Computed example of a mutant assay.
Amino acid sequence: MKGRRIGAWYRLVVILLKPVLLLSTRRNWKGAENLPATGGVITVSNHISYADPFTYAHFVYDSGRLPRFMAKESLFRLPLLGRIVRGARQIPVYRETRDAGAAYSAAVAAVRAGELVAIFPEGTLTRDPDGWPMRGKSGAVRVALETGAPLIPVAQWGAQDLLPPYSKRLSLFPPHRIWVTAGPPVDLSRFAGRPMTLPLLTEATEQVMAELTALVEEMRGESAPAERYDPRNRGKPRYGNPNPRTPKTPKARNFPGLQKRKRSGR
């Protein structure tokens, strides 16, 4: 933690947001020892709310690392937020354009420079009606295989109570319970040194999503559906709110597994 070069813009974000998160959340952090203290690393996380990048970043910051997010390019064009994310050296993702490869190249360079790159492999908020991780994209696996850096699954739950999916109604009080757990590195050794064909990337990505989902299952005390939600088969737009009337992701406090842990003090 000591001596890390945080930069002025990153420091501004910490000064502004960390006190808010400390007051509005009750944090259950686990697995921080699985995040390497130094060196390049890729993390993947489930995406349940527009608030979860902040709760995730809080966990990583408390673990002694600074995340560089791969984030949609439209955020970089917003008047104030855009200046902040650019100043904090986040990585813009140009979805389905000729510039899409720039994000991959930037992520590889960042990992090789010893940084922690954070990726939401679903590419958007989960469309699963119960908030489970859905089908993932292969970007994180490609970066991991290209660099040889560890890929760490980081599961989270509870941020949807701060800000429900696609909602603009932020709820800060009473404080909400937030769970974040980092698992051990995904073993991708059987894919290393092989051509990154579509079947290989699909298989490796499914392994990553399976391990991430297992962490969410443990966190929620429930089993995920046997078939992973795939938005390609649902006739919905690939990005944005798929249906304004879609049921909201269930609140964290509604899950008996989490309530049991809360009462027992774990």
Score class of each variant (00 low, 15 high):
F54H: 08
I84M: 15
P36D: 06
E33C: 07
I42V: 07
P164H: 05
P79V: 11
A149V: 05
S49N: 05
I91P: 11
R95E: 05
D130N: 15
K251S: 06
D99Y: 01
L78A: 04
L35F: 11
L188T: 04
R190E: 07
I152D: 13
R266I: 14
Q207I: 12
R228H: 04
I42Q: 09
R26S: 01
L16V: 13
R26D: 02
R65Y: 08
T205K: 00
M209V: 00
A155Y: 10
A118P: 09
G101I: 00
S24E: 10
E211Q: 15
P19K: 04
I48W: 01
F191D: 10
Y166A: 02
P242D: 14
L170S: 12
K2H: 14
Y94C: 06
A102K: 10
R95S: 12
S138M: 02
I48G: 00
L125E: 02
W9Y: 15
A37Y: 03
M70W: 12
I119T: 07
V117P: 06
R11F: 06
N46S: 06
L258P: 13
G123M: 03
G136Q: 02
L23S: 05
K2S: 14
I119V: 15
E206L: 00
D52L: 05
A159P: 08
L125V: 07
T55H: 10
V143D: 08
L258A: 15
P199M: 10
F54T: 13
D230Y: 09
V13L: 14
H176I: 13
M219W: 03
F54Y: 12
L198G: 00
P250M: 13
L75D: 10
A32S: 13
E218V: 04
L66G: 07
Y229H: 08
T249D: 02
E222I: 00
A57L: 04
T55A: 12
R86L: 01
R86I: 04
R83L: 13
D128Q: 01
P53K: 03
A210L: 01
Y10S: 12
V108G: 03
R169W: 09
L12D: 09
A88C: 13
K262L: 15
L200N: 01
N241Y: 10
A88D: 08
P174H: 14
G131I: 07
V208Q: 00
R112S: 07
V186L: 09
I15W: 13
